[in-house]
Design a protein around this nucleic acid. Structure first.
Lengths: 104, 104
DNA sequence: TTGACATATCGAAAAAAATCGATATATAAT
DNA sequence: ATTATATATCGATTTTTTTCGATATGTCAA
């Protein structure tokens, strides 16, 4: 986790929102596309299309956001068939918060 | 403290360095300009010129960096005569670390 | 009051990031 | 096989950030 990449990924309102929404997917994505049983899908994350619907940005922009957040270490993804599910990488985020507290 | 402004301020190697150096000014600015007795000057922070010497960037760039870090809430400044001393705003940083831990 | 110094601000040029539509790729359904 | 759907990638444009030198402002010393 490169601190600068993490900070850059967090320097945008929409990306910050996405990270926030993914903290409680059931709450923020109630009408989640019914591709998979709820348990699987929430555990595994939220698919790009559903995230895109909430974030008001184009498909390519959202895809790019998610990719950069993943590269920064904030998110992880799983692919189920044609869908990619993104979820928070809680362990990495926790570690980064610790780094922040001690090093910044 | 606007989180996004803070994250932006932290999205740069030199600015991150400055914040780090100011954590232990005695260690990183041993040859501090002798304008003021050491106690006063370290307590009050480090002057722009000394920071500029370490950060390899132009005077205007460093001044701009410090200004944006202050606006973000990470630094505070005191003016003694013709010098401006910058130091960390520890209380704000602590608060922000807490925000990070609970909200991000 | 003039000259030297520290810092801030201005204005412009260069570099990087954001953003989109179009297209590619991969999977699924018919 | 063909078509539809989800996501990723490409290429181009716009916007933002970075960075500098020049200049302005404020302070101190002679």
């Amino acid at each position: 986790m490169e601190p600068i990449d993490v900070f850059k990924a967090l320097s945008n309102k929409t990306r910050l929102n996405i990270l926030h929404w993914l903290k409680e997917p059931e709450k923020h994505f109630p009408k989640q596309g019914a591709h998979l049983p709820k348990e699987v899908s929430y555990k595994g994350g939220v698919c790009v299309g559903d995230i895109q619907d909430k974030a008001e940005a184009s498909q390519s922009t959202v895809s790019h956001y998610l990719n950069m957040m993943q590269k920064a270490g904030l998110l992880e993804s799983v692919r189920y068939g044609q869908w990619t599910y993104y979820r928070r990488n809680e362990e990495a985020i926790r570690q980064f918060a610790e780094y922040f507290q001690t090093e910044i």
